[in-house]
C-alpha cells in the first residue's frame, strides 16, 4: 500500500511539487499578501468621525492630509534622519570591528569574537532598549556614572537617545554581512595593492570599500528598514519625540484608514531604497 502510494507520487513530480507548495503558498499569498493588499485598499478609505467606523468609499483624503500637514512631513523627515544616522553609525562601527575579526584576529579569537557579536541578537529586543533606559537616565544613569568623570554626559531621552538605542539594536546586523564580506576578500588583493605602492588608506578606499559595498548595502537594508518602522524605542527612550511608527500606532485604534496610509510611507521608502540600490548593481553581486 505505502509502496504503491510512493510509486504513484514518484511518477508524478508535478503532483509532488503541488502537494509541497499548496499549504505554504496559501499561507503566504492568501493570508499575508492578501492582508497587505487589503491594507493598501484601506489606506484610501475614511472613517465616520462620530462612530469611528470605517467607511468603504474610495478617496484620497488621507494622502492629502499626509502630504499637506506639516507635522506629518516633520515626522517623516525626522524618521528618515534617524534611520540614516543609525545606518551611518552602524557602518562606521562595524567596518573596523569586522576587519579586525576577519583579518587580524587569530582563528580561535575569531570564533569567540563572532559568538560574542552574535549572542546579543538573541537577547530580547525589549530588554535591550530597557537597558538603554537605565544607561541614558539623565544625571543618575550609568553613562553619567561611567563617563561623567571624563566630562561626557548622557544626552538623555530624545533624538540622540533614539539614535544610540537603535544603533545598539541593529549593530550586529551590520557587523555580520561586512564580516562575511571581509572573509570573502582574498588577502592577496590587499598584498597586491600594497606591493604596487598603495598606502593603507588608499587600499581601503580603492580596493576594500568597492568590494565590500554589497555587504554594506545588505547590512544597511536591515539597519534602515528596521529603524524606519520602529515605535517602541521612541516610546521608551525617545522622550516626547515621535517617529513614523508612533503615528501609525496612535492612529490604529482611532483612525485605521489613516494608520494604513501612514504605514504606506515606510513601504514606499523601502521600495525607493531597493530600487536605488538595484541601480548600483549591489544586489546582483550579493
Amino acid at each position: 500500500m505505502l509502496k504503491s502510494i510512493s510509486t504513484w507520487f514518484h511518477n508524478r513530480p508535478r503532483v509532488r511539487l503541488a502537494a509541497l507548495l499548496v499549504a505554504p503558498l496559501f499561507w503566504l499569498v492568501v493570508a499575508y499578501l492578501g492582508a497587505l493588499a487589503s491594507l493598501l485598499v484601506t489606506a484610501f478609505y475614511t472613517i465616520n468621525t462620530f462612530t469611528g467606523n470605517v467607511i468603504r468609499t474610495f478617496n484620497l483624503g488621507n494622502f492629502q492630509e499626509l502630504f499637506t500637514n506639516p507635522s506629518y512631513r516633520n515626522v517623516v523627515v525626522r524618521t528618515l534622519g534617524i534611520a540614516l544616522s543609525v545606518t551611518i553609525i552602524c557602518t562606521l562601527l562595524a567596518l573596523p570591528m569586522a576587519f579586525f575579526m576577519a583579518k587580524i584576529a587569530k582563528p580561535r579569537t575569531q570564533k569567540v569574537l563572532v559568538a560574542l557579536v552574535l549572542t546579543p541578537l538573541w537577547a530580547s529586543y525589549l530588554v535591550k532598549i530597557y537597558a538603554w533606559r537605565t544607561m541614558l537616565e539623565p544625571n543618575s544613569g550609568v553613562i553619567d556614572w561611567l563617563l561623567g568623570p571624563i566630562g561626557i554626559h548622557s544626552p538623555g531621552f530624545g533624538f540622540a537617545g533614539i539614535i544610540i538605542g537603535l544603533s545598539y539594536l541593529w549593530l550586529p546586523y551590520m557587523i555580520l554581512p561586512i564580516y562575511a564580506g571581509f572573509e570573502r576578500l582574498p588577502n592577496s588583493l590587499l598584498d597586491a595593492s600594497g606591493d604596487l605602492g598603495a598606502k593603507n588608506l588608499y587600499t581601503l578606499r580603492r580596493v576594500v570599500l568597492p568590494i565590500l559595498f554589497p555587504s554594506i548595502v545588505a547590512g544597511s537594508m536591515f539597519t534602515f528598514s528596521l529603524s524606519l518602522g520602529d515605535y517602541i524605542t521612541a516610546t521608551i527612550i525617545g522622550g516626547k519625540l515621535q517617529m513614523l511608527g508612533n503615528v501609525v500606532y496612535q492612529n490604529y485604534s482611532l483612525n485605521l484608514p489613516f494608520a494604513a496610509t501612514m504605514s504606506m510611507v515606510p513601504i514606499a521608502i523601502m521600495g525607493i531604497y531597493l530600487w536605488a540600490v538595484r541601480r548600483t548593481g549591489a544586489l546582483t553581486s550579493l
Binding site: 491594507l39 528598514s225 524606519l228 518602522g229 494604513a260 504605514s263
Partner: peptide
C-alpha cells in the same frame, strides 16, 4: 521580515 513589523502587524490586524 523585510518589511517593518508594524506594517505586518497592522496589515494582519486589519485583515
Amino acid at each position: 521580515i523585510s518589511l517593518p513589523g508594524i506594517v505586518t502587524g497592522i496589515a494582519l490586524n486589519n485583515a
